[in-house]
Design a protein around this nucleic acid. Structure first.
Lengths: 250, 250
DNA sequence: TCAAAAGTGTTTTAAGTACACCCATGA
DNA sequence: TCATGGGTGTACTTAAAACACTTTTGA
């Protein structure tokens, strides 16, 4: 954390951060991405010159770290802080912003066509985001994305690949759920991320056995069926028993 | 690949690439890092102002991708191309080059103190590198590094963490060995990377069973003991049988 | 009492772990 | 013939995979 990050000076014109915000929607059991509209219409034109969706991003300031830029972007779009985030890849192709629409947009917004962007992804449950703000962001299921500007289709694809990989070996699914969840929620989340079906009996047994999955003295409420047991994830316990198992799995 | 990457124009002053070159030395069974000396002595001074080691890096050119920068840095230092490389992290703290020696160095070399560097690591067997060139690079065991300039101690540590993690789930050890290797070589490499001891019998059985580890019609030569069987790794076979196993391992 | 999802057990198969000795070779 | 590292086998334990029915609840 740089000491003077609140005194924003100049932006660095050729460095930006783009945030892929992944949200899991428990109701639709869908892994979603939060996007904003990119719209530009000149007065002398009938049709808009640019009309698609993009990730929220911003340039890094001279006096902030790129992690801080990511925090700032996230906060501005969602009002939220302290969420799980991962810097997953840099997009540094000199031609990455050279589609027709992107050039029009860049000229209109006065930024450099040679911008290197640092990709972060964030994990959260969709319902924590108040999506009523000036950006008017919208959730799209990862498999039904709209037309995307810049190279953001590629950025999202790379983020998703990384997420799928990490989900198998790190306890990050919990970041997509509320603190209290059911085993079925967990299974739904895995199924949405990985795009596979999982046997419910084997999954339950496996997860309930883990010491860091803790049964609470609480059950679901407001459901018109058998309310299910709620659990929480204990990061402390996880880290304590996280043996560096060194199981070579190639 | 940008089409005009050979016509180098200007460097981008605030973006660089640093390469952590990991080499496995079969003889010493050691995982090493290739470093270059950073030395600066002013005429009016008795002692050198800067005298330590750093990773090889360079700024990105206006017309090249950051991947291309990494290739260029690698080629300049080792003469080699087409090796396994991974872009593992960006170092974007605004104060990362603000140690006393780094400031002296930056002024002398005329580069910006606010440079964001993109960390790559490369894997190779040490003996493929001809380390006689103008940079006079030297190998250091990962656990016996010399004094390092800039934030390169941190960069190496992060690269190593990432390498250890990837080695467990991806077939990257083979990148640290020659095309033909013995099972013992493989085991030595894992032991050097992970810093653990592995049971030889279980390791052999596990690895020999893999279809992508192929026994050759060849044995070691030039050893004064029972020459051991040589094997190769088949990337094709690996990719063919690489089932997306989706084994949740948390 | 019914609809809906929660929750439960067993068997089979595969893989990991622990452990110690003989073997083939070149010098 | 000997020193050196190469190579092998077995028993045990743990985890994964396949598979279908009963239970609990609120409406």
């Amino acid at each position: 954390m740089s000491s003077n990050a609140n005194f924003q000076t100049e932006i660095i014109p050729n460095i930006s951060v783009d945030c892929v915000i992944f949200g899991f929607d428990k109701n639709t059991k869908s892994l979603n991405v939060l996007l904003i509209e990119r719209f530009l219409k000149f007065d002398d034109s009938e049709v808009p010159s640019v009309n698609d969706y993009v990730l929220k991003g911003f340039h890094t300031y001279e006096n902030e770290s790129v992690d801080e830029t990511a925090n700032r972007v996230l906060k501005e779009l969602t009002g939220l802080e302290q969420l799980y985030k991962k810097q997953f890849k840099v997009f540094g192709d000199p031609n990455r912003l050279k589609n027709e629409k992107d050039i029009i947009w860049a000229q209109n917004q006065h930024f450099s066509e040679r911008t290197i962007t640092i990709g972060y992804y964030i994990l959260l449950p969709t319902d924590v985001v108040q999506i009523k703000n000036k950006y008017n962001p919208q959730w799209f299921p990862i498999n039904q994305l709209p037309e995307l500007g810049f190279d953001h289709k590629k950025i999202i694809a790379e983020a998703y690949t990384d997420l799928k990989e990490d989900a198998l070996s790190k306890p990050i699914v919990f970041e997509l759920l509320a603190d209290k969840f059911t085993i079925k929620d967990l299974q739904d989340t895995y199924e949405a991320i990985l795009g596979v079906e999982i046997d419910n009996r084997n999954f339950r047994r496996k997860l309930i056995t883990k010491k860091y999955i803790i049964a609470l003295d609480e059950k679901q409420t407001g459901v018109s069926k058998k309310p299910s047991q709620l659990y929480m994830f204990s990061k402390d316990v996880y880290q304590k028993i996280y043996k560096e198992s060194y199981l070579i799995n190639i």
